[in-house]
Simulated scan of single mutants.
Amino acid sequence: MPGGGAGGGGDDGEPAFDPVALADQARDAMHLPGPGLNSSPGADAPVLVQVPVWLWVDEAAWEPVIAEAEVPGGAVSVTATPTSADWSMGDGEVVTCSGPGRPYDPGRDDPASASPDCGHTYTRASTGDYTVEVEVTWSVSWEATDGTGGELAPLFTEADTEVDVVESQGLVQTRAAAP
């Protein structure tokens, strides 16, 4: 490559470029999708104590995002890849999932079963709504046209919702034997 020395400068008159600074610029300009927080049961219905809650983020929000930047003398490509989702459940518990989670499918999944990927079971009712927050961590890497590359500081996206966690209690009545 003409002018492609490790310093980013050009022996052929091209101006030097700083690939790390250019990568930082591209990273800072990235537009990452929000996580699209989802659960079953959904946040629009009460959640029962001791009933598993399935958690997942939108699949479209779990795809790598690429940004590119170019200056005279070189260019960089920066890729952000989602690596984990940390769910703060509002009851003091944090659930860390290494993937987006799997949507609950009523035709396939048993509602009494825990999610195989990402889930939580509340053990006590809320006295008001619990705030459920999800934070997705994105690892960020870069490559430059001069052959350099590396890792940058991670990025984060987040979303939250309110859930009402309730108890369902049964009443047992005994009948007196007939005289």
Rank of each mutant, 00 (worst) to 15 (best):
M1I: 04
P2M: 01
P2C: 01
G4T: 01
G8M: 04
D11M: 03
A16D: 04
F17D: 01
D18R: 04
D18S: 09
P19N: 04
L22A: 08
R27F: 08
D28C: 00
D28L: 09
M30G: 02
H31Q: 14
G36A: 03
G36R: 05
L37M: 15
S39P: 08
P41H: 10
A45L: 14
V47E: 12
L48E: 14
L48A: 14
L48V: 07
L48H: 07
V51E: 09
V51K: 12
P52W: 10
V53N: 05
V53I: 11
V53E: 02
W54S: 10
L55A: 10
W56N: 15
W56V: 01
A60C: 00
W62E: 06
E63A: 11
E63L: 13
V65S: 10
A67L: 01
E70Y: 00
V71I: 05
P72Q: 14
P72W: 02
G73C: 01
G73D: 01
G74D: 09
V76M: 03
S77V: 15
T79L: 08
A80W: 09
P82S: 12
T83M: 15
D86F: 01
D86R: 14
D86A: 15
W87F: 15
M89I: 04
D91V: 09
D91R: 08
D91M: 13
D91W: 04
G92K: 07
E93C: 00
V95R: 13
V95H: 09
C97F: 11
S98A: 15
S98W: 11
G99F: 11
G99R: 09
P103Q: 06
P103F: 02
Y104R: 02
D105V: 06
P106L: 02
G107H: 04
R108T: 07
D109I: 03
D110A: 08
P111N: 05
A112R: 13
A112Y: 06
A112C: 00
S113Y: 08
A114T: 12
S115I: 07
S115L: 09
P116N: 09
P116K: 10
D117C: 01
C118D: 12
C118M: 10
C118G: 03
G119N: 11
H120Q: 06
T121G: 06
Y122P: 10
Y122E: 10
T127W: 07
G128Q: 13
D129C: 00
Y130C: 04
E133S: 15
E133R: 15
E133V: 13
E133H: 07
E135Y: 01
T137L: 13
W138D: 06
V140D: 11
S141I: 07
W142H: 05
E143D: 12
E143R: 12
T145A: 04
D146W: 03
G147H: 05
G149I: 06
E151A: 12
L152K: 10
L155F: 08
L155R: 14
T157E: 13
T157R: 08
E158D: 10
T161V: 07
V163T: 09
V163P: 05
V166P: 00
E167Q: 12
E167Y: 00
S168E: 12
S168Y: 04
L171R: 09
L171S: 04
Q173N: 13
A177C: 03
A177I: 06
A178P: 12
A178K: 11
